Simulated assay, not measured.
Amino acid sequence: MDLKKIAEMQIKMDELHGFPVQFPTTQEKYQQLTKDLVGLFGEIGEFSNIVKKVNIKLDRPDEYPLELPEAENLLKEELVDSFIYIIRIGAILGIDLQAETLDKMRRNESRYAKLRRK
């Protein structure tokens, strides 16, 4: 399944649950954008906190009660939660994330060509 289809599915589910991505005024659009941005930062914060705990566990394996497989599952969940917010933000702004990502990857390929390892 491509990214465009995943984004469409997520937006349909959001709209069914009362989380629209289109608004009658610019003010309402940016108010929702602000809420989703705060949500994204929250998810990134949760992801970061788990990484912090993994590093504590790696530094002091006998002193810190964290199971690494459990932590990796939590990291997956927080990363996907973050991705869902990015999908919503893209939809609010009318961005085709699939097309824009592919375009940015092409530009980065050219931009960082000198760094390519043989």
Rank of each mutant, 00 (worst) to 15 (best):
L58K: 11
E77S: 09
A99Q: 15
D81L: 08
S48M: 12
A99I: 10
L58F: 00
I92D: 07
I95Q: 06
Q32A: 10
K53N: 11
D14V: 08
D14H: 04
D81C: 05
V21R: 11
K57I: 08
K76H: 12
V38A: 14
A71I: 01
F47H: 00
F47T: 03
S82R: 00
N108L: 02
R117E: 00
L33Y: 09
K76A: 14
D103E: 11
D81E: 04
F83Q: 12
P69H: 14
S48T: 15
D96T: 06
I89R: 08
D36F: 05
I44G: 01
T101A: 13
L33F: 12
V80P: 10
Y85I: 09
N108E: 08
L58Y: 09
P65R: 13
Y30N: 13
E8T: 12
I87E: 06
K53M: 15
L33R: 06
T34Q: 09
E43M: 02
E100L: 00
L37D: 07
D59M: 02
R117T: 04
K5D: 05
K104N: 02
V38P: 01
L97G: 05
T26V: 14
K35Y: 03
L115I: 06
Q32V: 08
L37A: 13
Q98W: 09
N108H: 03
L93H: 05
D103F: 15
L102A: 02
L40P: 06
A91M: 10
M9A: 12
R107P: 01
R88C: 04
E46H: 14
K52R: 11
E70A: 14
L37C: 12
L74E: 07
G90I: 07
I92G: 00
M1R: 07
L66S: 14
N49F: 15
G42T: 12
D36K: 01
Y64R: 06
K29Y: 07
E100W: 02
K52G: 08
F23P: 11
T34A: 04
M9F: 03
Y64H: 08
K29F: 09
K118D: 15
H17E: 11
Q32K: 00
E78L: 02
F23V: 13
I56K: 09
V80G: 01
I50N: 08
L74I: 03
N73K: 15
E67P: 01
V21P: 09
G39I: 04
R107Y: 00
L16H: 10
S48N: 11
L102Q: 07
M9N: 14
K114C: 04
R107T: 09
R116L: 06
I50T: 12
L16V: 08
L16C: 06
V38N: 06
E8W: 01
L33S: 09
R88Y: 02
R116C: 08
I92A: 10
I86K: 10
S110I: 14
